[in-house]
Write a protein that binds this DNA or RNA. Structure first.
Length: 321
DNA sequence: CCCTCAAAAAGTTTTTC
DNA sequence: GAAAATATTTTTGAGGG
């Protein structure tokens, strides 16, 4: 029980993709491996620092962002280009020279895969009008997920949810954008990486009412199991934004567990609870944060934090050192 | 900075059209 | 679906340590 489960920090730009493309590239000067530095738009040798390429296009958000609020403000909202062809080859055209984005030849296995994708692409393109719909929706999902800094797996889940909604004829009468947003919202929650309605609303074109309505509808019709957002899931993000220790983070989780058992969770806003837990934990571990600091990154008022964290502490009167 | 209290505001849920 | 009514939570603002 003591070891904490592996956690994924989502506020960092993911680097999974880059490893496979960089490992084959070797520095012409010293033989060290090359690394893509997307922040400066350079490809640089990790050994000797030689800059091999400059002025590459940075597909990431503008400037650097230190917390979720800044990310929201500074991220480019238009769909950034990524190498993700997560939509199973539904995009209108796919580069077809059996080379990857760097001009390297693909492995035979990948070539085979590409051939398959090409076939499907042809079929889909001319076939079903639903697929056009889907293509647009996936674009929206991708765009919003980028703006929110959601990892790839969430986007995939959202795509799956959207597909199911489409297959079950849930779309008629509802906007693509609305369903796409709802799918993403549901996916984020299911993946344990929730974003609040506020955050979703900021990047979506649909208003809150439509979003909540279609969301509820989709959940019900697809019988998706999405429990009320778990406050614990907000903890890692806030903790990282505030720079608190692992210990405090764990402590916050414990507090929330106890509160849950005491039945204090229901009805309260998960975000407020998470914020309060972080604040309480920061006190318990002697790395004091101010209430306003926490309230700032969590988007809740100080008073809410106060109320919640009192309740939180009441559930565990003893504080074992 | 933190705290409490009371009142206003805002989002929910249910009912009705 | 929209609107109105209701019960609940969150925020606001004043006032004090």
């Amino acid at each position: 029980m003591s070891e904490s489960p592996p956690r994924v920090r989502t506020n960092e730009r993911t680097t999974e993709e880059t490893s496979e493309t960089t490992e084959t590239e070797v520095c012409p000067e010293c033989g060290g491996s090359l690394v893509n530095d997307t922040e400066h738009g350079e490809t640089v040798c990790s050994e000797c620092g030689l800059v091999v390429e400059e002025d590459e296009i940075d597909p990431g958000p503008e400037w650097r962002a230190f917390d979720s609020r800044e990310r929201d403000e500074k991220s480019r909202v238009g769909a950034p280009t990524t190498k993700m062809m997560h939509d199973k080859g539904l995009s209108t055209n796919i580069g077809w020279q059996d080379k990857d984005g760097y001009g390297n030849a693909l492995s035979s296995r990948q070539r085979e895969k590409m051939q398959r994708l090409r076939t499907w692409n042809e079929r889909f393109r001319t076939r079903d009008s639903k697929e056009r719909n889907l293509k647009q929706a996936l674009g929206e999902i991708d765009r919003m997920a980028s703006a929110l800094g959601l990892p790839e797996n969430v986007r995939e889940t959202a795509s799956v949810i959207y597909r199911r909604a489409l297959e079950d004829d849930l779309l008629p009468g509802r906007s693509i954008e609305g369903v796409a947003t709802a799918s993403l919202y549901a996916a984020a929650r299911q993946a344990g990486n929730p974003r609040s309605l506020d955050e979703l609303e900021r990047v979506s074109r649909v208003d809150r009412m439509e979003l909540t309505r279609t969301y509820r509808y989709i959940i019900r019709e697809l019988e998706l199991e999405v429990r009320p957002a778990d406050p614990e899931h907000y903890v890692p993000r806030f903790a990282s934004d505030l720079g608190v220790s692992e210990e405090a983070e764990r402590r916050a989780r414990d507090l929330l567990d106890q509160a849950r058992e005491a039945g204090l969770i229901s009805g309260k806003s998960p975000v407020g609870l998470a914020a309060a837990a972080i604040y309480a934990a920061s006190l318990l571990t002697n790395q004091k944060l101010t209430q306003s600091e926490v309230g700032d990154v969590a988007d809740v008022s100080e008073v809410t934090i106060r109320n919640r964290y009192h309740e939180l502490l009441e559930t565990q009167p003893e504080t074992p050192a």
